[in-house]
Simulated assay, not measured.
Amino acid sequence: MTRFHLLIAATLGHVAVLGGAFVFQAIGYAPCAMCLWQRWPHAAAIVLGALALAGVAPRVTATLAALAAVITGGIGVFHAGVEQAWWDGPSSCTGGADLGAFTGADLLSTDIADTVIMCDDIVWQLGLTMAGWNAVLSFGLAVIWGLAARRTV
């Protein structure tokens, strides 16, 4: 495969993963805070992929996109571990969240979303959780980015 083909594959891979996240959200699987954190590096990789495809320092942009893929994969591993109770997650979005920061009016308000999704709740699983699949796919995309960065043509 040429560098161009690898860049297309990796960029479209991130489009598919990020698009899949939005599809799951559209059909009713609201994201937690950590799910949202995982989306930002995918968006960055898409922008970097577009720049690389446009010929803007392809080796550098592919390397940066690989880093973005590793970052979202790392967040996915951490999130999956929180979901499986292997380690504690951020207190702001796990079952141990401190409700003391809310006033009575905040707790009774109807202006918030119908459902608050906690980061340690598994809302969908097919072998791995969504966070786990994000990690696997992201690390695979990081490999493709790395190959693209190493290619000269």
Rank of each mutant, 00 (worst) to 15 (best):
L6D: 02
L7K: 12
L7M: 14
I8H: 03
A9I: 12
T11W: 03
G13P: 02
A21G: 00
F22G: 14
F24W: 08
G28R: 07
Y29W: 01
Y29S: 01
C32A: 15
C32H: 06
C32F: 00
A33M: 00
A33N: 04
A33I: 07
A33L: 05
C35Y: 02
W37M: 11
W40C: 02
P41L: 08
H42I: 10
I46L: 10
I46E: 00
G49E: 06
L51Y: 11
G55K: 05
P58F: 15
T61R: 02
A62V: 14
T63I: 07
A68P: 12
V70S: 11
I75R: 01
A80S: 10
V82Y: 01
S91F: 06
C93G: 03
G96L: 08
G100V: 13
F102K: 10
F102T: 06
D106F: 14
L108C: 11
L108A: 15
A113T: 03
A113P: 06
V116A: 05
V116H: 11
V116Y: 10
M118H: 09
C119W: 02
D121H: 09
Q125G: 04
G127S: 13
G127Q: 13
L128R: 08
W133C: 00
N134S: 06
A135I: 01
V136Q: 00
S138Y: 06
L141W: 09
A142V: 00
V143E: 03
W145C: 05
L147C: 03
A148T: 02
A148G: 00
T152W: 15
